[in-house]
Nucleic acid binder design. Structure first.
Lengths: 292, 292
DNA sequence: AGCCAAATGTACCGTGTGTTACGTGTGGGA
DNA sequence: TCCCACACGTAACACACGGTACATTTGGCT
């Protein structure tokens, strides 16, 4: 691996014929944008004929020109990382040291901090305001029942969201843990309901089914997912994407939590006084039952 | 003129129809590579028809789909930057309020973002490295059983920590929900055990009791709490304080989660190869039981 | 319920694409 | 001088691409 397409072109520049070399220079000069131009355009820029561009591509070892473009595309996105492979890549370098000097944990915290800050910032920057406010509106509508569901780790986010919503609105339901209960839960999805699904890789098929089902029943669907988009996103009315980068093999849910908290805050804001009433009420109930 | 094509798409996401929005999301998810795919391919990825992709492009103000691609191309070579720097520009260091001119819709998110960033930073800055490191050591010790417990909201953090630890070490136990089980849980606390308690205001008396009990039995106690310090902190060997400021009536647990994730990462790092073994094993078990 | 408008998919078309086959030119070796 | 291999351009082609007109469905409103 290791080599980028540009490096590869530079390396094999010597094997090319003069006219082909002109093509390669044009490609490198405008890298990576030029690669996505049409063959004819590139040919014109390099002052050669179209077939020369083709020959250049094939001599570089590509099946055709689209093949070369595809190679660059897949180089541009950095996906395909399962927790295991991440672990194997990262851990190898400085592993053996057993007794860590004091500074190390400090360094770890510092590195983690900047990663988290970056991830949270990017997440919030990339949230389309419209999506966020659609979600707020849906969750603020008292006539809609709310269902929340999450996966292996993310069910905790679902519960967190649900717990907060419960504080100031009715009809918040959690996806049960056990299969039998889940079935009856899913049959109860109705029109006007809004379903919130957390689905991060590895995506869980039942989340997609759930979203699809909720949609078919005429309900609205909100999906929290990572930048690679859960398949459930296909059936969603609102998709909220959060970054997951971290310095460990596991995805970070911190940006997701931050977004959930903002969502809760916005919903509370939106519901306003009614919500306040309910908060007070639930507090007094809690006091009388001695739960506080 | 908004700055990058991605920003422009996000901004106008609201003007798009649902199916068109799916297209936009696919474009953003694989940005910038996906934009150079063919219309048909993108349509398939977004689970819509090709014309929808076309309509999406034209509604975004482009003359045709090639026009959109051309726009991205000229954006790519405008900045000599690599695709990665396209992201990093968006939200790195100084993010004071004026960075987002978008108006009311963004105001909430913008404000929330800077609050969160502030809170996370302060939290990490104020963590004493040796406390963190002590916690890592305690949780990395395979001879110690680990017990986790949390409150009304924070039990989710406890579970999150526990779930992760379970991935690469044995003997992780969760404080049960029901009272009777709790009793027996508490009686089982033994020497050498380490108990992790999350206690944020309003502090819950049983958490303090639990910490005290664990200490008496000769175990170690780690307490996560807010800056006003839970009474349980009095019986703790390690106290990890996290900020809770937010723009809603509720405390934010985002900094706490970020710290938990860092802790998990550090423990995993510390345990090293053994943990790696266990991760692989648990993956294979999960596969065989069809849980993935 | 029933209508209307927007949204979306289906079927089809023209065109520009990448590609191939072939012809022309050029340089080096007897 | 002839020859031949190689480099390159020209021309023609198949096809898949983006684009459009129209049918169908959806969803909101009265």
């Amino acid at each position: 691996m290791s080599h980028t397409l540009a490096d590869e072109i530079r390396r094999r520049l010597g094997d090319l014929s003069p006219a082909e070399r002109k093509v390669a220079r044009v490609l490198l000069a405008g890298y990576p944008a030029t690669v996505f131009e049409t063959v004819a355009t590139i040919a014109e820029r390099a002052s050669v004929s179209a077939p020369t561009v083709l020959r250049c591509a094939s001599r570089l070892g590509f099946k055709g020109f689209p093949d070369l473009q595809a190679a660059l595309r897949s180089e541009l996105d950095a996906r395909t990382a399962s927790p295991i492979t991440l672990y194997e890549n990262s851990g190898s370098s400085e592993h053996s040291a057993s007794a860590r000097p004091e500074g190390t944990s400090d360094a770890r915290l510092g590195a983690a901090l900047s990663l988290v800050r970056q991830a949270v910032s990017q997440t919030f920057d990339e949230i389309a305001p419209h999506e966020f406010y659609d979600a707020v509106n849906l969750l603020s509508d008292p006539r809609r029942r709310v269902h929340v569901a999450g996966g292996r780790f993310t069910h905790l986010l679902a519960q967190y969201l649900g717990l907060h919503l419960t504080q100031f609105r009715d009809q918040v339901h959690f996806l049960p843990d056990r299969d039998v209960e889940r079935a009856s839960f899913l049959t109860q999805l109705a029109r006007r309901d809004v379903t919130v699904v957390f689905d991060y890789r590895r995506y869980e098929p039942d989340k997609t089914v759930m979203a699809e089902l909720a949609r078919e029943r005429g309900g609205k669907v909100i999906v929290f997912t990572d930048p690679w988009l859960s398949p459930a996103a296909a059936h969603a009315d609102v998709v909220l994407t959060t970054q997951v980068t971290s310095d460990s093999p596991y995805d970070s849910l911190t940006p997701a939590l931050a977004l959930v908290e903002s969502l809760v805050a916005a919903v509370l804001d939106r519901i306003g006084d009614e919500g306040h009433e309910r908060m007070k009420m639930s507090e007094s109930v809690a006091k009388r039952t001695g739960l506080i």
